[in-house]
Simulated assay, not measured.
Amino acid sequence: MRLSLDNKVFAVTGAAQGIGASIVKSLIEEGAKVAAIDIDAEGLAALASLTGVTCFSGDLSTADDAHRLCQEVLDSQGEVYGLVTAAGGVRGQVGRALEEVGECDWRKIFAANVDAAMWCAQAFAPVMKATGAGRIVTISSGAGLRPSLTGIQAYTAAKHALVGLTRQLALELGPAGITVNSVAPGFVLSNPATQKQWDAFGALRQGQIVNSIHLRRLGSAQDIADAVVFLCSERARWITGQILSVDGGHA
C-alpha cells in the first residue's frame, strides 16, 4: 500500500532530530514537500540537503513568534496541506518531588508541548479551510494517557492537555474537511534526552519497562513516523479525533 502524498506540503515542527527528523524523511519518501521547523538551526542543517525540504528556524512557544514563523512558511511554500507537531519533550528536566517544581520549569514544558501546537494550528488552519482539506497530527505520548515514566508532572499534564486539544480541534475543524489526530508513542530512544532518561532508569527498571511491552522492545523513531504518515494520507480520510498509541502494546 503506497501512501501517496505527491506534492502535498507539510509543516513539521521539532524537525531537527529524533522523531521529527524521521517524520520529515518519511513524508519526503512518499512524495511530499516539507517545511521543517525547529529552534535548533544547526540541527536542521542535516535536513537542508534533502530534496523537497525547506528549513525554518525559530521559537514556537509564543503566539507572535509562532505566527510569524508560520507566515514565513506560507510565504515560501504558498500553501500548507498538513501540520505535524513533533516539537515538545522534557526540555532537559528530570523527575522531582512535587514540592521542588518551579513555575518557570512548569511553563517551559507547557510552552513546548501544548502552546506551540496550538499556535501553529491556529496559523495554518485558515489555509486548510480555504482548500477544504487538510491534516493535523500531534505527537502526544503514553504520558498523555496515563502517568509518565519520566516522573515529570508538567510533562504528563502537558501531554494530557495536547490530547484534549487534538480532540477539540477535530470537532471544530472536521466540517472544513480537516482531520486532526494524535500519535502517542511509548518509550522511544530517539535523541540524547531520551537516551539520558533511559540510562538513568538503571538495569532493573529498564528490564521492567521492556517486560511491560507486549513486543518486548522499545520503539524507534521510524515506528512513530510510519504511523504519522498513514494519518497524513488519504487512506486515513475518515479517521479523526483519534489517539493512536504506538507503543508495542502496553501492559
Rank of each mutant, 00 (worst) to 15 (best):
G177H: 08
N191C: 09
N181H: 01
Q206I: 02
I209G: 00
Q197N: 05
R217V: 14
G207F: 01
A200I: 01
G177W: 09
I178V: 15
G174F: 05
D223F: 15
F187A: 14
A225L: 05
G219Y: 14
G174E: 03
Q222A: 15
L215E: 11
T179Y: 01
D199V: 06
P185R: 11
N191R: 08
R216D: 00
P175N: 08
N211T: 10
V180Q: 07
K196Q: 12
A200G: 12
N181E: 00
V210F: 06
A203R: 10
A225E: 03
L173R: 10
V188M: 07
Q208R: 08
A203N: 13
V210T: 14
S190E: 08
I224R: 11
T194M: 01
I213E: 02
G219R: 08
T194V: 02
D223P: 12
S182G: 11
G207Y: 01
G219F: 13
S212K: 01
T179E: 08
L215V: 05
S190H: 06
S220P: 14
N181T: 00
Q208T: 02
Q195Y: 05
T194L: 02
L218D: 09
R217F: 12
L215D: 08
V210A: 13
G186T: 09
D199A: 15
R205S: 06
V183P: 02
V180G: 06
S190D: 08
A176Q: 13
P192H: 00
A225Y: 02
P185Y: 09
G177M: 08
G202V: 02
T194R: 04
A176T: 04
A200C: 06
N191F: 08
V188C: 04
R205D: 06
G219Q: 12
G207S: 09
H214V: 04
G177N: 10
A193Q: 15
G186P: 07
D223L: 13
L189K: 05
G219W: 13
G177F: 11
A221T: 11
V188W: 03
G174S: 14
P192M: 01
A225I: 04
L218F: 09
Q206A: 05
R216A: 07
G219T: 13
I224S: 10
Q197A: 10
R217N: 13
S212W: 00
A176H: 14
S182V: 02
H214W: 11
Q195E: 14
L215F: 15
Q208S: 05
G174N: 07
L215A: 12
S190K: 06
A184H: 13
I209H: 02
Q206E: 07
L218Q: 08
G219S: 12
A193N: 06
I213L: 15
D199T: 10
V180R: 03
V180C: 13
G207C: 08
P185L: 14
S212N: 04
F201Y: 15
S220M: 10
Q222D: 14
P185D: 12
G174I: 10
L189V: 02
Q197L: 12
R205C: 04
A200N: 13
A184Q: 10
V210N: 11
N191L: 09
Q208P: 01
S212Q: 02
